[in-house]
């Protein structure tokens, strides 16, 4: 881990890993989609529309995983001051927000045939929606503060406080939902899922995870490059400032 504190060493590793991860993600997704679309049974209640599950559920997994990654990276940045930690946290946020958005959209599309409406205030959809706003707040905070080292620390606090609040928000929304409507929603998920559906679901989950890893490495490199440019511009500007003075 400490070897990677050197950005150049990290760059080298990232350049080598990115294509491998991308190819692995593509291949897994191909197998996953084949199983999901052609080689798995339609649900006896939901019919063919159950196949939306294979893109929806992994997106929801990733929504949570990305936020956890951000929280862990923020914690690591706090405690060990690892220079890549805040780059990781910052770069994860837009990817996580995109997965969360994807989970919301696919959930909504799945909801139309299942519930007869694009949006139901289902407990899970609602808490994912709130999670999406947590991501937005984190991203907004990062972009509002100019000083990067300060932004990293301040955003880390926001991320960690949000992270310990997630279980409470989840609980409150579940509770709110059970208060207003009995749990009548049919779900393909859960531990009772049949093996023939579990295979494509897990394959798609792995594909999503690999995609996240590849995207994360790319956007971390972009962030590092951006910081280098900012540093160079600053040092290019500094002498002229001295001349004016």
């Amino acid at each position: 881990m400490h070897n990677l504190a050197n950005p150049q060493r990290f760059e080298k590793l990232a350049i080598r890993l990115t294509p491998l991860l991308s190819i692995a993600a593509g291949v897994t997704a191909l197998f996953g989609l084949y199983y999901a679309l052609f080689n798995s049974p339609a649900d006896y209640q939901q019919g063919e529309s159950v196949r939306i599950m294979y893109v929806h559920v992994p997106a929801a997994w990733m929504a949570l995983m990305c936020y956890s990654t951000m929280a862990i990276a923020s914690g690591v940045g706090f405690i060990w001051k690892h220079p890549l930690a805040d780059v990781t946290a910052k770069s994860t946020a837009p990817i996580g927000a995109a997965f969360t958005f994807l989970a919301l959209v696919t959930g909504s599309i799945w909801g139309k045939p299942m519930w007869g409406t694009w949006w139901a205030w289902d407990a899970r959809l609602t808490s994912v929606l709130i999670l999406f706003f947590l991501y937005l707040g984190y991203i907004a905070l990062w972009s509002a503060i100019d000083d990067k080292t300060r932004a990293a620390k301040v955003a880390a606090i926001a991320c960690l406080v949000g992270f310990i609040n997630i279980p409470i928000i989840k609980f409150s929304v579940d509770w709110w939902n059970s208060l207003h409507q009995p749990a009548s929603v049919l779900r393909g998920g859960g531990p009772t899922i049949h093996q023939s559906m579990l295979t494509p679901l897990l394959l798609m989950g792995i594909a999503y995870g690999l995609t996240f890893a590849a995207l994360l490495l790319i956007s971390m490199r972009a962030e590092l490059a951006e910081r280098r440019i900012a540093r160079l511009e600053q040092s290019a500007r500094a002498p002229s400032k001295a001349m004016i003075l």
């Binding site: 947590l134 707040g137 609040n165």
Partner: peptide, 13 residues
């Protein structure tokens, strides 16, 4: 934007 998501439990309860 920062506070609203964190305050949802307070509003609900």
């Amino acid at each position: 934007i920062l506070t609203a998501p964190l305050l949802t439990p307070a509003i609900i309860f």
